[in-house]
Every structure is written in C-alpha cells, then in structure tokens.
Design a protein around this nucleic acid. Sequence first.
DNA 1: CCCATCCATGAACGCCGCTCATAGAACGAG
DNA 2: CTCGTTCTATGAGCGGCGTTCATGGATGGG
Lengths: 293, 293
Amino acid sequence: MAGSTADLLPQELRILVAVAERGGFSAAATALGLTQSAVSHSVRGTEAKVGAVLFERGRSGAAPTPAGERAVALGRRILRMYEVLAAEARGAGRDTVEGVLRIAAFRSAALHLLPPALERLAARHPGIRPEVRVVREIGAGAAGEVAAGRADLGIATLGGSQDGPPGLLTGVLAQEAYRLVHPAGHPDPRGLPLMDWDENCGSYTRSWWRAQDWIPRATVKAEDDAMVLTMVGRGLGMAIMPELSLREATAAVDITDLGPGGPVRQVGYVTTTESASTLAVRDLIRELRSERG
Amino acid sequence: MAGSTADLLPQELRILVAVAERGGFSAAATALGLTQSAVSHSVRGTEAKVGAVLFERGRSGAAPTPAGERAVALGRRILRMYEVLAAEARGAGRDTVEGVLRIAAFRSAALHLLPPALERLAARHPGIRPEVRVVREIGAGAAGEVAAGRADLGIATLGGSQDGPPGLLTGVLAQEAYRLVHPAGHPDPRGLPLMDWDENCGSYTRSWWRAQDWIPRATVKAEDDAMVLTMVGRGLGMAIMPELSLREATAAVDITDLGPGGPVRQVGYVTTTESASTLAVRDLIRELRSERG
DNA sequence: CCCATCCATGAACGCCGCTCATAGAACGAG
DNA sequence: CTCGTTCTATGAGCGGCGTTCATGGATGGG
C-alpha cells in the first residue's frame, strides 16, 4: 500500500486516463492539447514513480496492462475527488450544489425511473447538470462504470449474476416482479415461442424459469428489451419481462401476472463513498427512493 | 461539483493536511521540512483555486473553517488514494500486498476482536504493517476517523445513537448481548448501585433499560469499560456490559445473562470505497467475519 | 519499397513552487 | 507603554521539472 512513491501530479493522472480512453499516446496528446512527446515523457515518468509498466505499446496505440487498468480506474476516481473537494469546500455553508452529475443506468431505468427523480432534483438544485448514460447491463454494467470512475451513480439490478466489483456502496431502490407479455387477444399465448434478450440474466429468474415445465426453451433472442416488446406486439412470440420494461407496452400486447411465487428482481443504486458524500448524489438517491410506481 | 478549478497539486493537499493537523502554518512548515513562507503561499494559492477561505488565521496558528474541514478530510483521502494506486498497480498480478493498514477501533474491539484476525492477515500478507489506533466511541468515533481519512478501516458499534457521516461502507461483524456483572459471591447483587460509562450509549439498550423496573438509576459513572469492570470487581457496584468488554473479567466478578429479551448491540466495520477496493482491507474484513467467539 | 503512423529520446525553454529576506500584527511580561 | 516573541503576509529571485521542438527507430499497408 504505502510505497515511497513520489507524487503523481493530477496532470499525469489526466494523461493516464486520456491514453486509456483514446487508445494511444498521440490521440491522447491531441485530445489534451499537448504534444505526443509530452505524453510519452509523462507516461514514462509515471511508470517510474509507480514502479510498474502501465501500457503495452504496440503498433496502433497503447493498451493498458492489468496494472494500468487499476491505475486508470483509481486515477479517474482521484480526479473526480478533486472536483468534489473543490465543490464541497465552495458550497460549505450553502445547501445547494452545482456541477455535472454523471449517471449510468440500464435502458428501462433511464427511461422510466430517472426522469421524475431528476425533475425533482432539478427543482431543488437548479445548478446541477445531470448526464445520463445508458449502459447495457452485461458484464460489469452500470456498477462497472461507477467502479471505473466514469459515473457518480449507477442504476443496476442488484444481487444478480455477479454483484460487481467489491467496494461499492449499494442500496435497493425497488423490487419489481416479472410478468408475462403476449400478443393481445391471442388464443393460445403459451404455445408461442419464448423470447429472450441479452441483458436478461438474473440468476433467481433462471432458476424459477427451469422449474416451470410449461415454459418452452427460448427460441428467439433479441438485443434489447424494447425490441422484444415490439416483436411480441407483432405476434412473434411471448416473453417474461420485468415491470420497468413493460412501461412501454402498447395496446398490441396483453400482460398477465405470474402469481405470487413468480420471479422478482431488485433494482438498486451503486456509488462510491466519495460520490456519496456529495449532496447531489445523496439527494438523487432520496428522490429515487421516494418514488412509487 | 465540477468547477473550472485549476489543479490542486498533491503537495498542496499535503500542506493543507499538515496545517490542519499541526494547527498552524509555521508548525506545518517545519513538519514538512519547508519554509513558513512556502506554506503561506501554498495555502493562499489553494484558497484561490478552490474559491473559499479554508483557514481562520489567528494569533496562535490557523484553524480550519467549515470549508477547510471538508477540504482537509477529502484531501487526506485523495492522498491515501494515491498510495493505493501505486500499491495496487505495483501488486497487480501478484496476490499479496504490502504497506501500512490504518485501523481505528474502540478499546474492547481492539483488544479482543482484532488480534486474532490480524494474526491471520499477517500470515497471508507478511508485508502488511497494521497500525491500530484505539478511539473513544463518542461523537463520530471510529467512523469519523474513517470519514476524515485518518483510518482505512474502523470497528464501531453500528446503528447506535447516530450512524455516522453519510457515504461510508458498513457491515455487521457480530451481534453481542449485554450481560450483568456483579461482585463475585455477593448476597444481593441487584441491590448494588448501577455503574455506567461514557461510551455506553446504544439507543436500544437505553430503551430496554428503562423498561426494567428493577434497575436503579446509574449512580456511578466511569470513563472506561475496563475501569467499570475493575470497580465492580472491588464490590463498588454492578454493571450491564457487552460481551466484548467482559472478556477481561477476572474471578472477582460473576456474570449472569439477562435472558432472551435482553439488549443487544451490533459491532461492525466502517470503511470507504477506495479503501474497500484494497486487498488488505477486504481480507481483514473477511478474517473478522470468520471469527466466532 | 516507400510512406504513413505509431512511440522514443535528447536539448532547450519557461512556468511555477520554493527559499530568502523583510514587514506587519497580536499578545504577554516587565 | 514598550519591548520581545510568535504568529502570518508579501515581494524578489532562483531552480527544478514539465513542456515543446526536432529527430530517430519500429512497424505495417498500399
């Protein structure tokens, strides 16, 4: 942990992050308004201070080594903490904050959970500029964005396949049931092929899935829950989807409950302690919590 | 949050922290091996960048303003993150870590909970140097130490009077019951005066307390649980104490249960996300969790 | 085969954070 | 009241270091 490391200047962190983001020294240089030489010198110096090779230099750019990945992720969060420091110190005493609030969320949450909460947040803190980024909930998902320092708050499904990188602040926002969607007025909806999509991978759902003998194997797979929904609307099959995704349901589909023992998923927030010390993040979480429906 | 703030150099953070810790510009200067002038210039520059007055200059030194308090706390955590960055990047690939691990805990936890866990941690990571600091559990307590960036991991009683500053990672480690201690072989222990001490302030305990009509008002108050215990041993009274404190009980006292409905307290850990991403902290929490008895 | 596009390297420049020197302010002692 | 002590504030000047400029080596594509 504590090494006799010389200072890493914030500028060096910025360069580190830029190199990782742009995929090369030259690209990072132009992005930062610097010379390629400056970037090369800086990275070399950083590697000397840290004591590890951070980038694999190759023909077309530079790729982070495992050590580089860690360094970049932590660097992003350090840079973010600088901003928080300035904002908190400036705003100490006042009860409002201003600045950018970076949010990462999966599609249906960004569409239906965030807007009302953000509206109320904006009413309370007019100076805040939320930046919502839609993130596919595969791999690390929204939690990964937070861990990598690319977002201050993430909206994700909790307790699913893997609960993300360790060392994140999480909390449950809502519990939502899965329901059955099928073409409106279809005579035998359960005879239709079952549709699935990439991000649909809660483990409890899967187990409930297998226990139901009436459910056929998924035959059609789509990229997106919205796509599944429109395909169901056109009579191409049925699907089992969480309530949030069903907010976009049109009259072309019918929705039926799966009963009390049906599968459920938990939607929650993910953040870091340095972001959680921010008024903006705390207030947004409160607004999200106070949401009903 | 995001201001158009110029960079705050790590050195400026170090100066900030030193001024807060030493209580003055001159003292900070000598502590850092700098000139008083350098400190003065640096602080002035920092205040300009941040856009707020951080220290109240007075006759004998400088005291942080509210804005300064926030800045110093975040600054300490940023500096710590630099160390973590270097250590993690260096150790990427290897599965062991080395360096200082700063722990804050209340007395009885430091004495009875930490040692076995630290022993196992040392076996796994020989390079780690734990620094345990005993903290009185009044005010912000161990959680405050973590929030202020003075410790990486805190051991505290959770859910008590106030659950500390927001934005901390917490988890329950153990649930322990309160029990009754009284002088060994005393004919009427419940007739003795009840002893209390400063840090004994769990809210649920208090309520249970009041519901028991046989308990007299606390008449004797001590500073420390250990002091209470020895005073009980000398026949000066009886006390209701948590199990951890009773590990030091001698043959001079008898211990009796309070029954199934008795008061309980939860002992847990407190940390930040940037510390929690550290292997050392994660492993120590695991060791603490695996403890029984 | 040559050119385009990467990164590496050395020398010179200029900014900025440091020291040195000095001034101002506040408080206690005599 | 005045001197002495102990704080911080400020200006001038130096030096380290991060930057640019210029150039070289390596690697593939047309």
